[in-house]
Simulated assay, not measured.
Amino acid sequence: MNSTQQTQNKMSEKHLVCQGATCKCKFGTVPDKLMVKTQTKRYINDKEGKKKLTATHKDIGKTFEKNTFGNCAKMNNNPCQAVVTEWTGFYDKIVIEDNKGKVLLEDSKATCPIGGKDCIDIINHGQKSEVTTGNFKNANPEVLVEACPFIDFTEVSDNMEMEEEKADYI
């Protein structure tokens, strides 16, 4: 296997990071949520395309919801002032056209001028599973019954379809 294939295999096992990802500084006391402020068009894991903007290495500065990780051990437990000066460990094979940013991966790390290089970790990438009628239509019925024998998936699927039709109509 050549190095390009190894890199692609390594990346395929990781999640891309999106708005709402939970981050934590190793010197802080609480996590904070990542806010994507460098682009407004490229969404992932978001059926409606309204919440989960793709995060990139260009998301620097005060790019968190509260801009604090609680008390900072590097500042004698005074309040943290979270600021990202750079990201490392991003995936350079995917570039967001709008900001020329390279997408962040769940193991990317951020640098803060107080905490130092790679002191901020991503502890949750921000993506969430959403069950849709398409999931039920594409699922093998025998597998669903084996996994959850007490649920009538035909009824669940029908109800989901009715809700989707109602939402489309409104």
Results as ranks from 00 to 15, higher is better:
residue 31 P to Y: 04
residue 11 M to V: 15
residue 163 E to W: 09
residue 105 L to Q: 13
residue 68 T to A: 04
residue 39 Q to A: 04
residue 163 E to I: 13
residue 46 D to R: 06
residue 168 D to F: 12
residue 30 V to E: 10
residue 72 C to S: 10
residue 11 M to Y: 12
residue 105 L to H: 06
residue 77 N to A: 13
residue 143 V to K: 15
residue 56 T to S: 09
residue 134 G to C: 04
residue 53 L to P: 07
residue 39 Q to C: 08
residue 84 V to P: 02
residue 127 Q to P: 00
residue 150 F to L: 09
residue 19 Q to D: 08
residue 28 G to L: 05
residue 128 K to M: 08
residue 1 M to C: 05
residue 5 Q to P: 00
residue 113 P to H: 06
residue 101 G to T: 02
residue 122 I to W: 06
residue 18 C to Q: 07
residue 16 L to A: 11
residue 156 V to S: 13
residue 103 V to P: 04
residue 24 K to A: 07
residue 117 K to A: 07
residue 168 D to T: 06
residue 81 Q to D: 15
residue 34 L to H: 02
residue 107 D to H: 12
residue 152 D to I: 05
residue 110 A to Q: 10
residue 154 T to K: 14
residue 8 Q to G: 02
residue 55 A to C: 08
residue 42 R to E: 05
residue 120 I to S: 07
residue 169 Y to V: 11
residue 117 K to P: 03
residue 13 E to Q: 15
residue 73 A to Y: 01
residue 119 C to L: 09
residue 89 G to K: 08
residue 155 E to V: 14
residue 83 V to W: 01
residue 115 G to T: 04
residue 145 V to G: 03
residue 170 I to G: 03
residue 90 F to I: 03
residue 110 A to G: 15
residue 86 E to D: 08
residue 91 Y to L: 13
residue 30 V to C: 03
residue 48 E to Y: 07
residue 66 K to T: 01
residue 153 F to Y: 13
residue 97 E to A: 09
residue 84 V to C: 08
residue 140 N to A: 05
residue 97 E to Y: 02
residue 143 V to S: 07
residue 79 P to R: 06
residue 2 N to E: 10
residue 47 K to C: 05
residue 127 Q to D: 09
residue 140 N to C: 06
residue 17 V to D: 02
residue 5 Q to W: 00
residue 41 K to S: 08
residue 26 K to F: 01
residue 77 N to V: 06
residue 72 C to N: 10
residue 99 N to H: 09
residue 25 C to V: 00
residue 55 A to L: 05
residue 82 A to H: 09
residue 113 P to L: 13
residue 4 T to C: 07
residue 158 D to P: 03
residue 121 D to C: 08
residue 28 G to V: 01
residue 138 N to Q: 11
residue 140 N to L: 12
residue 170 I to K: 05
residue 170 I to H: 04
residue 101 G to E: 05
residue 114 I to D: 03
residue 90 F to W: 13
residue 75 M to I: 09
residue 148 C to S: 11
residue 125 H to N: 06
residue 83 V to M: 02
residue 15 H to D: 13
residue 82 A to Y: 07
residue 100 K to E: 03
residue 28 G to R: 01
residue 67 N to S: 04
residue 7 T to K: 14
residue 112 C to L: 10
residue 23 C to L: 14
residue 92 D to K: 15
residue 67 N to W: 02
residue 41 K to A: 04
residue 18 C to E: 07
residue 25 C to Y: 02
residue 88 T to P: 01
residue 119 C to D: 12
residue 163 E to L: 15
residue 117 K to M: 08
residue 38 T to S: 12
residue 67 N to E: 00
residue 135 N to T: 11
residue 167 A to C: 08
residue 59 D to V: 11
residue 99 N to F: 03
residue 28 G to H: 01
residue 81 Q to F: 01
residue 112 C to K: 10
residue 155 E to Q: 14
